[in-house]
Design a protein around this nucleic acid. Structure first.
Length: 434
DNA sequence: TCTGGGGTCCTAGGACCC
DNA sequence: TCTGGGGTCCTAGGACCC
């Protein structure tokens, strides 16, 4: 059943979604390989060890908020012996795959929504006890991967999100909650703050509260026209989803990506153009590699620089380059990017971040030859294949472009001072003498 | 020289997500 | 001193065309 705004009265609930969400995912990954962390406050940091992006329940209980800068909680960390880890994306990505693989045992119709979440289509499972089924999912994932998960089940994705949220909070639910039966629906919705609803961010939450809508139940029963006017068509879909009318089906094969971004914040500000040029070349290399992995080419390249956004003299500038022919060739893209950066670089700036975006993506096979094209596309393609093959075999970065630089003091490189070992993807720890 | 409306495409910005 | 990164969708407004 699709989302049809005119027929709200006569709907019937035909779909069943389960949302499986890994608890404190990055922290849980660290705990799998270091059981001493269980039961203790643990946090995982963003790039450059800047902010806390994952927190164990014990860390949350200490009042450590999502994305809080580490320097603001230094004392808290010290006094409570909080265990602190740099992020280890290779490890988390690999653990994520194991979790998702396990979930395919329960239905082939699953949508990997993010690194730590998946929606399962359980419409075919209505005759069985859904709570039991959810419990089975939970224990199996935990047994096979070591990652604790919560399971929320309901008639729409938005309600499954809410069920999951409550499953985590409620002691009685103990990690699994089925909201497909309408019996406790109002009670459940009333228990969820409006800001916790999927699709309601900070701005909308503030606006809704100012208008007397504090929880999910009040939002569900809000006036359609009022919501449509203030939150657009998305808001209307949200109301329908809360009312049990599914607007967002499972998407098993995600459509081709529409853009690629690569950017990093520097630990220390950079003033020199040469260093920025190196950083940009490195980001372009990463972005182009991603394009080639997906057999895509880009038609637009954007380069930007910015100084510290928390300071008064904040400076941001960007340039959008329309490429003559869509491409995924690293050296070609580096050429454009360097040219673009020279145009927006302002001398004397203390730059904290730079990045590139690739837009207007399309399939490699459809590249339109251009009469004025000066690049030998066949030759470039073969070279790129060779580079990718070697980097795959020898490890990422085995072959780099000269423009990326090779110095030991590349201050633009990201710091990870408390990183755990890549237990699942590298074998070097087996050689360590302990 | 003035007059009208509708459609499409593009872009920038704002909101959200994890 | 120290503040992450990578995405999506929608909307409004302008340019342009008929």
């Amino acid at each position: 059943m699709s989302c049809d705004y005119g027929k709200i009265g006569k709907h019937f609930m035909s779909s069943v979604f389960a949302l499986v969400d890994c608890n404190n995912f990055y922290v849980s990954c660290e705990r799998v390989f270091n059981p001493k962390l269980v039961g203790r406050p643990v946090i995982v940091l963003s790039n450059n060890d800047g902010c806390a992006v994952a927190r164990s329940n014990e860390a949350k209980a200490l009042g450590i908020k999502m994305a809080v800068p580490v320097f603001q909680i230094k004392d808290l960390i010290k006094h409570n012996k909080v265990q602190v880890y740099s992020s280890n994306y290779a490890l988390y990505g690999d653990m994520s795959q194991r979790v998702m693989q396990t979930l395919t045992q329960f239905t082939p119709d699953l949508e990997i929504y993010s690194i730590d979440e998946a929606f399962l289509d359980l419409a075919g499972c209505k005759r069985i006890n859904l709570t039991e089924y959810g419990r089975n999912i939970k224990t199996t994932v935990e047994k096979w991967t070591g990652i604790p998960v919560s399971v929320g089940i309901a008639g729409t994705k938005t309600l499954a999100k809410i069920a999951n949220h409550l499953a985590k909070k409620s002691k009685k639910a103990n990690g699994v909650l089925d909201l497909t039966t309408a019996k406790y629906m109002d009670q459940a919705l009333a228990a969820v703050a409006v800001g916790e609803v999927w699709g309601v961010g900070r701005k909308y939450a503030g606006f809704l509260k100012a208008n007397g809508i504090d929880n999910a139940l009040q939002l569900r029963d809000a006036d359609d026209n009022f919501i449509k006017k203030k939150m657009g068509i998305v808001g209307l879909r949200l109301l329908n989803e809360l009312r049990g009318i599914s607007c967002y089906p499972i998407e098993q094969s995600p459509p081709r990506r529409k853009s690629v971004t690569v950017s990093r914040t520097f630990k220390k500000a950079i003033a020199s153009l040469d260093e920025l040029l190196e950083a940009v070349a490195a980001y372009v290399s990463t972005g182009a590699e991603k394009l080639r992995q997906e057999n895509s080419v880009a038609g637009v390249l954007i380069v930007y620089v910015m100084t510290n956004r928390f300071k008064d003299d904040y400076y941001y500038n960007s340039v959008t380059l329309k490429l003559p022919v869509q491409t995924n060739d690293t050296s070609e893209l580096i050429g454009y990017a360097r040219e673009g950066l020279r145009g927006i670089y302002k001398k004397g700036g203390q730059y904290k971040k730079t990045g590139i975006l690739l837009h207007d993506l399309g399939p490699e096979t459809l590249v339109q030859a251009n009469f004025f094209d000066t690049v030998d596309r066949n030759r470039s393609k073969k070279l790129m294949q060779a580079v990718d093959a070697i980097n795959c075999e020898m490890g990422s970065g085995a072959i780099k472009y000269g423009a990326v630089g090779v110095g030991r003091n590349q201050s633009w490189k990201t710091a990870f001072n408390q990183r755990s070992r890549s237990y699942t993807t590298h074998w070097d720890h087996l050689l360590e003498v302990t």
